[in-house]
Design a protein around this nucleic acid. Structure first.
Lengths: 255, 255
DNA sequence: TAGATTGTTAATCGATTAACAATC
DNA sequence: TAGATTGTTAATCGATTAACAATC
């Protein structure tokens, strides 16, 4: 994972488990796609498949929201879009600031997925004076000196940090002091924040390291398979890495 | 959660739980910082604090790797750096390709955190012919027609997808067909992959939606607190959102 | 009514945490 | 030896899943 809350127990929020909250945006995206194709209803099986989860989990997740389905029929797509949007707080407008307008900050500013979900980039902020006034994605870059003013006048409660690692904690402190209570951190730094402030982090390097771990393991499995049974038919790539019971001797799929 | 494996049960890999694997890079980063400051040893308490986890969890995590600490003393920083690096597979070189060289792809190409962890950008790949031959971060961009050749000649097993959502599945299919078995996906798409292929996804929009959910909840709590006890002293921001038992009536911290 | 599909139960599994014996 | 800190145990908690009664 590249993400997680800092310094707060994973208590249920209004009775909805964190794991469920994290999947709601996934369901919402799949439902929005169905809505655009004017599909009126969808079964838990179909929707789960589109979202990449299993249907039991999806039904369990939805049961925390209420009983929005119809037995024997499925879920009304439009109704469910609305209910999930409401639950996630997407029926209101969320102004955000992006601090650190390098390559990554610019990429986020240009990302189209914001506006459609009620997120509005209230300002782009950078410490480099020569950036001030320049436009990125049609939004003028403002100097970090104005950070507090920008947050107050726009009522911003969500901040995105895309600065280098060295500046992240300092920026975070200023954001929090100015009243920000949710932070999305792209800098490779563990941010220290007071209780009541949520931090989620996205860390490219960590994601790659986790993939490397599994790659290494696959390579080791292939090797041990060859060594243990050199003349056994090779299991095709699509079935590798899946075998159930743990242990050094890999199981073989029945033919 | 911005991340997660697709279509594979969270089985333990070589006995190390997924949750532990996901934290190893965090420990490694903190240890590397200590190493650069020439700190010889560190206690579980200190290291846990630097990594933003509690010390019991850290010791439990390390216990899966082996007994690398010394009771009464702590952990040898250099030794632990080596052991974790080895466990994660970072003592070898991992060539990666980045497909889709827009703002985000360029940001990743420029990201310095790759090389230091054994990841090497073998190629930047884009479908736009006018990009071909141009350099990004000193690396020439090559046309997607060359994708298979690039992967084979460089022995690439990890691919990063930074294309628009519409192109992601198609690119993924080609990567997998060419032999890629680990994918880091930045496109807002649920990728369908055969078993044995690991996918981790980083989804900005999902992270923001999860933050919005918690923001909304904090706002609702503040409101109910004011309504329920308008003249009660306000709990400072640092203590909000933390109260234990669920229910509609917020608990009050003892003074 | 028959078929389909939800919503819920209960079992299982994995992750977290406090506590403390082991031991440097 | 006394103090410090690890490694492990056991309790607890949260998440997943299959199965199926409820019901459209």
């Amino acid at each position: 994972m590249a993400t997680g809350r800092n310094h707060r127990p994973a208590t249920r929020s209004r009775g909805i488990p964190e794991a469920t909250v994290a999947r709601l945006p996934l369901y919402l995206r799949a439902l929005t796609a169905l809505s655009e194709r004017s599909v009126p209803t969808v079964s838990s099986e179909e929707l789960a498949s589109a979202a990449g989860v299993n249907s039991a989990k999806l039904r369990k997740d939805f049961s925390y929201l209420g009983s929005y389905g119809t037995r024997g029929v499925g879920y009304d797509v439009e109704y469910l879009v609305y209910q999930i949007s409401r639950e996630l707080g997407l029926t209101q407008d969320w102004p955000v600031v992006i601090v650190g307008i390098g390559n990554l900050g610019a990429a986020l500013a240009n990302y189209g997925g914001f506006a459609s979900r009620g997120f509005r980039v209230a300002a782009l902020i950078d410490a480099d004076p020569s950036m001030s006034g320049k436009q990125v994605a049609g939004i003028p870059v403002r100097h970090v000196d104005e950070l507090e003013t920008i947050i107050h006048t726009n009522g911003v409660s969500i901040g995105v940090i895309t600065t280098p690692g060295g500046a992240a904690q300092q920026v975070c402190d200023r954001l929090v002091a100015a009243g920000i209570t949710s932070i999305l951190n792209f800098a490779p730094t563990v941010l220290q924040v007071p209780e009541g402030v949520d931090v989620r982090k996205v860390d490219l390097s960590i994601e790659l390291q986790i993939l490397a771990f599994h790659e290494q393991r696959k390579a080791a499995e292939d090797l041990s398979r060859e060594t243990a049974a050199p003349d056994r038919m090779r299991v095709p790539a699509e079935q590798r890495g899946e075998q159930g019971p743990e242990g050094d001797v890999p199981a073989v799929m029945p033919a």
